[in-house]
């Protein structure tokens, strides 16, 4: 698992995660276990760590967020070079991951590290719930049969 930190000022901080399903695709209602590692904290003191399993929308609308699992845990020992933890939860029946055109639904494991300086670092690891194929914009409706004269009446 590789990751690229977007933080230029703290290039060494890095959070990796491993899911119990290699393809990161889960059925709704299935159990999920994910393990994460936080490395490169350095000398800065950690105030707390939040880990959550969330879904959010993406696309052309404002981002809506749903939190399925949330936990705030105590800061690690200052001597720990690498902090690791495990998240275990049972996923709900919905929403399914969806690759729509203007609305997308994504599931993710988020690990957020709060430092005593007030700054925070969040890492997002996307996985899928369900296996829906991507949506495609529909072509304009077409008539499925040429119009035929129909005389009024109940045809049931």
């Amino acid at each position: 698992m590789t990751s690229e930190s977007l933080d230029r000022s703290r290039p060494t901080l890095r959070i990796d995660a491993q899911f119990d399903r290699l393809d990161r695709t889960y059925a709704p209602g299935a159990p999920l276990t994910a393990r994460y590692w936080i490395a490169g904290i350095g000398q800065e003191r950690v105030r707390s760590i939040e880990r959550s399993v969330d879904w959010y929308t993406e696309g052309k609308g404002e981002e809506d967020l749903g939190v399925h699992f949330f936990e705030r845990i105590a800061p690690p020992s200052p001597t720990d070079a690498v902090v690791e933890g495990t998240v275990t939860t049972t996923l709900p029946a919905s929403p399914l991951s969806y690759e729509g055109v203007i609305v997308k639904v994504r599931w993710c494991l988020r690990v957020r590290v709060f430092f005593t300086s007030g700054r925070d670092f969040v890492s997002e690891h996307v996985f899928a719930v369900g296996d829906l194929p991507p949506a495609r914009p529909a072509a304009p409706a077409t008539r499925i049969a040429p119009p035929v004269p129909v005389v009024r009446g109940a045809s049931t």
């Binding site: 690229e4 977007l6 000022s9 993406e58 696309g59 052309k60 925070d120 969040v122």
Partner: peptide, 18 residues
């Protein structure tokens, strides 16, 4: 806040999120 995103597949970079 610093954000790190690790995911799969093509992501539309013009989504309102970005």
């Amino acid at each position: 806040m610093t954000v790190q995103w690790i995911g799969r597949g093509a992501r539309n970079p013009f989504a309102t999120r970005f």
